[in-house]
Write a protein that binds this DNA or RNA. Structure first.
Length: 548
RNA sequence: GCCCACGUAGCUCAGGGGAUAGAGCACUUGCCUCCGGAGCAAGGGGCCGCAGGUUCGAAUCCUGCCGUGGGCGCCA
């Protein structure tokens, strides 16, 4: 039953676009087979609750004047009004503006209460399709740093969004536990243990000395170091509630022998060739700048070859309909073309591999830049960020902006417990809404079941605004999932929280001057607000505290 | 030099074919009998980097240029 309730927002769009389509047909317009009725929420309130540009889009093909056509459509719609529509008008060059009765917003309250925070805003576009989201995948040569934090927050939020849209999601971490970087790491640990200077090309972070001092005498620096780094990474990521379903080891992949299969497959496909004693991938045939080495002249695999085998394996695990999403840092963007080239060469649809590239984060503390530099040793570890600002603020701040931007993350501002801090502002809205419900309970208010409450008394502009914002959540979730853009949810939360604070300020729920039936209706609205805030925060992996 | 992303209010950033371009901070000014004023509201502030093009319509799409960041290893 709750499932059908949650379809309400989809229904209102369907109902409006269906009516528009019927109006167009009645007006004698021939619609293209793939015609989609444009329907959006106007930026300006006076343009109504929903608006369509259908007349503008169709006018040219129909050889009609947009404004005249719009007038005709409006007249027809006036005689055949869909449910909840109070008024249809024409504006500007030919926009059709729908003004809805408050009853459509009252349905939104029922919808939210019925769905709960886990169900509200759920979409069905995933239809059970498998998607493997690979993110963080830091080298096991040291702690995860602040830059990985962004990938962690982003990858996990994308996974959560996709889950809310009906995808079957696997979170995966790829361990690059092989190759020259691992050699250098092991050599650095071994040298530090013996009190010798670490190799110049090695790792110089302070953690090397710390970990070397923990390392038992006679331990294999490579294996011990790998486990030490992974344990550290797992621990830190876990403390911001990022958990992976699968940890895939490059070394294990190599040991299993599947690399040779991949090499053979590339050879059979004519995608590789030998030159200068090395084996090369013809990636330049598929849009890459140049060809890339798969097997070095000393017989060692490069990073690329096992990674191709790994992606082949992932595609296989995801199934024929499955999708791969990789979250890579900006320093790996040049790697996208060659991986896609390899996928094409192996006969896989390169569109099944998506790579989201996250730009670098500039880290500040009270306006002063803090450099992130893994190799030189003055790196800011993710652990430090979490200790300073907390997991909730870190996640929310990482997700404040699009991953296409290189934002500034001020640790001091993110940690501040003030309303100017968007994390605090949004969480505070949730806490306030919970406080109201507590207060009503403490005041002896007995709540009626929502379906028996007369929501028709909710007509205050603050209430309407809150319900309007709430009603957009499902569309926001869908857009955020499709665009792999969790920051859209962050932006929505800030707007919705502002509406909640406004309501809180102007609309008392319990108190002397509030009629009992209004208290009941507002308590239902408060529950709906709690659902919306908790649902939004939940898709970002941020907690919704009941008090602060 | 080539490749990718970005350039929007003083600052941090949303918006990514549609109507008069938005939010927070900062600045000016109002509002506390009562659910937490840790708040709410009003105001000032914009060649949407520049120049062309496509379109009924461009901050949004295309091309070029300028600027910023990142990448261009038989490292990972």
């Amino acid at each position: 039953m709750a499932g059908t309730m949650c379809q309400f927002m989809a229904d209102i769009r369907t109902s409006l676009s269906g009516a528009l389509r019927a109006a167009l047909v009645a007006a004698g317009v021939d619609l293209p087979g793939d015609f989609q009725v444009g329907l959006e929420r106007p930026a300006r309130r006076e343009h109504g609750d929903w608006s369509s540009n259908a007349a503008l889009v169709v006018a040219k093909g129909a050889e009609r004047r947009p404004r005249e056509l719009a007038e005709e459509l409006a007249a027809w719609l006036g005689e055949h009004q869909p449910e909840h529509v109070a008024d249809v008008s024409v504006a500007g060059p030919g926009f059709l503006n729908f003004r809805l009765a408050p009853s459509w917003l009252h349905r939104v309250v029922l919808d939210a209460v019925a769905c709960g925070s886990e169900g509200y805003g759920r979409q069905s576009l995933g239809r059970g399709r498998t998607v493997i989201v690979e993110f963080v995948s830091a080298n096991p040569t040291g702690p995860v740093h602040a830059g990985h934090g962004r990938g962690a927050a982003y990858g996990d939020a994308v996974a959560r969004l996709l889950e809310r849209c009906g995808y079957r999601v696997q979170r995966e971490f790829y361990i690059n536990d092989r190759g020259s970087q691992m050699d250098l790491y092991a050599a650095s640990l071994a040298a530090a243990q013996k009190g010798e200077p670490v190799p110049e090309e090695g790792y110089h972070g302070r953690y090397i000395a710390d970990w070397a001092s923990e390392m038992p005498a006679g331990a294999d620096a490579r294996n011990w170091g790998r486990e030490r780094a992974l344990a550290d990474q797992r621990d830190v990521l876990g403390s911001m509630s990022v958990e992976f379903d699968t940890w895939s080891s490059e070394q294990a992949l190599v040991d299993s022998g599947v690399i040779g299969d991949t090499l053979d497959a590339l050879d059979r496909a004519g995608a590789s060739y030998g030159s200068d004693g090395a084996v090369w991938l013809r990636s330049s045939d598929s849009g890459d700048d140049k060809d890339r080495v798969l097997v070095k002249s000393d017989g060692e695999y490069t990073y690329l070859l096992p990674d191709i085998a790994y992606h082949r394996d992932k595609l296989d695990r995801a199934g024929p309909e499955g999708l791969l999403i990789n979250v890579w840092g900006a320093d790996h963007h040049g790697y996208v073309a060659r991986m896609k080239a390899a996928m094409s060469a192996l006969g896989c649809d390169p569109d099944r591999l998506e790579v989201a590239v996250t730009q670098l984060v500039r880290l500040e503390r009270n306006g002063a830049e803090v450099r992130i530099s893994k190799r030189t040793g003055d790196l800011i570890e993710l652990r430090e960020v979490l200790d300073e600002v907390g997991a909730d603020a870190a996640r929310f701040t990482y997700l404040l902006q699009s991953v296409d931007t290189a934002p500034t993350f001020d640790l001091a501002k993110a940690a501040a417990q003030v309303m100017e801090n968007p994390v605090f502002y949004v969480q505070m809205a949730h806490a306030r809404v919970c406080a109201i419900a507590d207060r009503a309970r403490a005041g002896g208010v007995v709540r009626q079941p929502v379906e028996e409450v007369d929501l028709g008394v909710l007509v205050h502009e603050r209430e309407l605004e809150m319900m309007r914002r709430l009603s957009a959540f499902g569309e926001v979730v869908k857009a955020a999932a499709v665009e792999r853009a969790p920051h859209r949810v962050t932006a929505w939360l800030r707007d919705f929280a502002a509406a909640v604070h406004g309501f809180y300020h102007d609309c008392y729920v319990v108190g002397d001057g509030v009629a009992p039936e209004l208290t009941q209706a507002r308590l239902a609205l408060v529950t709906a607000a709690r659902v919306g805030l908790a649902a939004g925060l939940g898709t970002l992996g941020v907690s919704a505290p009941e008090s602060m």
